[in-house]
Simulated scan of single mutants.
Amino acid sequence: MRGHQKSLPNLRFLKPQSTARITQGNDSIGFKFQEQQNYQRFGKENSLQIDKNNTPVSNNISKVAKQSFIQKTEPNETTQKKMECRKPSVFKFLYRPILKQNSEQSLTPRIVQPLPEINYFYYVSDLVAAYGAKDNYFNRLFKDHLQQSFMAFKQCATSKIIFRPKPFILAKDPKDTRKYTLLLDLDETLVHCSLDMRLPCDKKLNIKLSPQEILQVGLTIRPGLQTMLETLQPHFEIIIFTASHGQYAKKIVEYIDPKKIISKVLSREHCCFTDLGQYVKDLSIVKNRFLSKTILVDNSAFSYFYQIDNGVPIIPFYENKSDKQLSLLTKYLIGVIGYEDVREYNQQYLKTYLLDKLDTLEQIIDIYKGQINSKKT
């Protein structure tokens, strides 16, 4: 459920690996006879083909599959030629664990994010590493995210506001002495929602947008969300600020925040809207919060264009359960405690203002590299 500014990065390189072909009809007599013939013809054995009781190949595969493994290679050309010539050969199998998501088996390859180094800058270090390494899931996300953010700032500079919400006072408990306000985007930042109910998800929700319209979505929660909320609660007033429909956002928050740590939900009607179809979150509409104590975390750079140094970027989340960004974000936000102005903290470590000031991505990456190298020395 994305706003107009949400866009799916080019992830064409993430093509599911093809699985080996296994003959259908496992229970038929003909299959068992053919299986026995194959077993006798391919006399050579290995530990992955035959178990201790010398059971046929398919039985052992079934046994191994119950242990959460799958067959993952196609026969190569040499093997095919040998098969055609009826020469003895050996079936070769390559196994990899099945990653289970939401009690369903997923065959999509997963890339696990490495743990950060000692001299690590949130977002910046991963971005520099992505430009210096081969493409994988997370490297491509970081590169695409920087490119989209760069273009977003250029577009915002030429767009015009066609709707601006009225300023308002945000209620706060007088006993609440927390110094900072944290605004969190929802879609692709904390969760991912899909209208395709066939896809694996954490929870399927029916959301009533109006008396006549009920929306069914599959909700996937970004790993580390609950831990982040509980860790930041003593220091931050936590508010959701999304460009999505208000009823939709409240229903999602009700599910992902059972402990009610999130105090408020701001939605689409609180966003500015441009002639280019962009939703921009102007933080100045909240009249009783200081910008020097306010942070907005959003995967879309459109959102914090009006207050660049209040914005904290994060790569989008779709469904990869190996994502560790919320854990890294938590450590970054804890680091702001003690600063009188959060904008100085963001300027020092994120330098997001470079996206608006510089003309090329290469210039930005060079500055980020210099930032990391200076820390090492």
Rank of each mutant, 00 (worst) to 15 (best):
F91K: 06
C85R: 08
E74N: 11
R41S: 11
S103T: 07
S149F: 01
T78P: 03
F93S: 04
G132K: 08
Q37G: 09
Q37F: 12
R41E: 15
S125M: 09
N60S: 08
S149H: 03
R96N: 12
R96D: 15
Q148R: 07
P56W: 01
L94T: 13
F69V: 03
Q101G: 03
F93C: 02
L99D: 09
F69D: 05
T55L: 14
V128K: 04
A65Y: 08
V124R: 02
S149Q: 04
K66A: 03
P114L: 04
V112H: 09
I70A: 01
T73V: 15
E84S: 12
F42Q: 14
N102L: 02
L94V: 10
K87W: 02
I61G: 01
N54M: 05
N102T: 12
F42M: 14
Q105L: 14
F138Y: 11
E45F: 02
G43C: 08
D51P: 02
Y39D: 15
A130H: 01
S106T: 13
K52H: 10
Y123R: 04
S58G: 02
K100L: 14
E84M: 12
Y95V: 01
F142Y: 15
K92C: 08
S68F: 10
F33L: 15
P97I: 00
Y120G: 01
R140W: 06
F91E: 08
N38D: 11
G132A: 04
T108W: 07
Q148E: 14
P109S: 14
L127E: 00
V57W: 03
Q113H: 05
Q36H: 10
V90A: 00
S103P: 00
F93Y: 14
Y95R: 06
C85K: 09
V112P: 05
K87V: 06
S62T: 08
K87Q: 15
E104I: 07
Y137C: 04
E77M: 08
F42V: 02
D144T: 10
N136Q: 11
F121C: 05
F142N: 11
T73C: 04
F69L: 13
L99V: 06
E104T: 08
S47R: 07
E77Q: 09
R96S: 13
K52F: 06
F121W: 08
K63P: 00
N53V: 02
S125Q: 08
S89R: 10
K52E: 08
F42N: 14
A129D: 15
K44S: 12
E45Y: 07
A129S: 15
P116C: 13
M83P: 01
K81C: 12
Q147C: 06
Q80H: 10
N119M: 09
K100H: 09
Y131T: 03
I70T: 07
Y120P: 01
I111S: 13
